[in-house]
Computed example of a mutant assay.
Amino acid sequence: MKHSLLRLSGEKKIIVNGMIMMSDELTFAGQKHEIRGNDDKSGWTVSDATLTSNSAMITTSVETVLSKLIFSLPSSLSSYSTFISSSSHLTLSHCVLSLQNYSSELSFLFLSIESETLAIASFSASSITLSGNPLISLCGSGSKAESMIIKWLNMTNCNFTEIERTTGSGSCVSIDNSDDENSNAEINIEECDFDGCSVFADESRGGAIGVQLKGSIQMNIISCTFTGCTAPAAEEKTGFGGGMALKLIDDYSTFIISSPVFDFDKPNIARYGNDLFVESSNLTKSITNTSLPFVSEHLDDISLDSMRGFDGNDTTNAIPLVYFWRAIGTEIFIGSEGCDVCVCGFSDYPCLSMDHSLARLAEGNERNVSIKGKGYLQKSVDVSGISV
């Protein structure tokens, strides 16, 4: 049975000033609670040696505000399942997660959310290596759940520095509702900084943020900074999206990534998609000026390896997303180094086969196919009016 150092279920407003030591479970009655530290020195210091990996530091089933607190653990405790477990609206404001005494990998979940709404503002965490769960999961008690309960998340002005995860995807924020048929939610992450956040597992997605969406989910990532974040890039491991990775399982989920900041002096790194990787059942529908409004303005500055994605069931060709902003005119290129995907046909990204390239070639008075090296023909085609 789980126990908590602080369990909120009653009718009082709790204000905490300064550092406190807790060793017994506390129970309060109330409709709304606020736990707040002062401006100079604030936080929870856990010293109870009887804590087990089944414990939750704070469990709340009523609307709760946690403000100006420092969450920390003693160096003798190597594992802690959950810091905060909430089944009602939770506001986390100006709090710090500090685990500076640790040098080994930890397995814990900072937030276990089983409520429909969550607000996180000015939260910071740094220098943490996780061997199990991500730092923040929106799917209840783990990185994946059969039903995503949350309907609204607003995360603003948060700072994550050197958060590392040795398993799974998304070291800071991980969302996976791929088994849920009825999700309906809005998720907003705005003006947050992710510096040196990484995942190390093979096939992992999203150094800082890893998302798999199904159903009517609107994901907005606005004015966030990603620097030095990584997913595996070595030959023996494959990672997707050094900064962030999104997988849209059906046509109902949508996303907007607006005004991101990627530092050229401290770049993000992944095997595919250094900054962003997007998987979609229909990549042409997902990658637009609406979903990535910053691309058209900075197209000349975005490298082919910055953003890549998979289209439909094709997980062989990691398509450079910048080609969705380029147009095929009356000339198309094919060659043995090409691939037959939805945006092929450019001189630096040719198609593989003649028939696929002709299907992409725009109508015009003069239509030209340029073959670089060797091209392929998979079926008979009509080449009348076409110069090869």
Rank of each mutant, 00 (worst) to 15 (best):
V322P: 02
D314M: 01
A234W: 13
E203F: 12
S280T: 05
F277S: 05
F262E: 11
F255Y: 10
T230E: 13
Y323M: 01
G241A: 09
D195W: 15
R271A: 00
G309Q: 00
N220Q: 14
N220T: 08
S216C: 09
S259N: 15
G312Q: 11
V261S: 06
I257R: 00
F255L: 01
I222R: 13
D265F: 13
A233W: 03
S198Y: 15
L299S: 10
T290I: 10
T316G: 08
M244N: 09
L283C: 03
D275C: 15
G329A: 09
Y323T: 00
F294I: 11
L248S: 02
I249S: 03
N268H: 11
S253M: 06
R205I: 10
L304V: 04
F194E: 01
V261Y: 02
T315L: 04
D275T: 15
L321H: 01
F200A: 13
G210V: 03
N274R: 12
W325D: 02
D202C: 14
T227L: 12
T288F: 09
V322I: 06
D202R: 14
D305P: 02
S281W: 07
V278K: 07
F226S: 05
G309D: 07
I302Q: 08
D311I: 00
G309N: 08
G312R: 08
G273D: 00
S306H: 11
G210W: 00
T330H: 04
H298I: 10
N282F: 10
R271P: 04
C197K: 09
G207N: 03
D250K: 07
V278Q: 09
V199A: 14
T225Q: 08
G241L: 06
L248Y: 06
G228Q: 07
T330E: 09
F240E: 00
D275Y: 01
N220C: 09
Y272R: 10
D300W: 03
D251W: 03
G196D: 09
V199N: 03
M307S: 04
D195F: 15
M307W: 04
W325R: 13
F277W: 02
E191A: 13
T288N: 05
G312K: 13
D305Q: 13
F200I: 09
D311V: 00
Y252E: 05
N317M: 03
A270Y: 07
A208I: 08
D251K: 06
I302V: 06
F324Y: 04
S296T: 10
N268L: 11
S281D: 07
S198K: 12
L292R: 13
W325L: 04
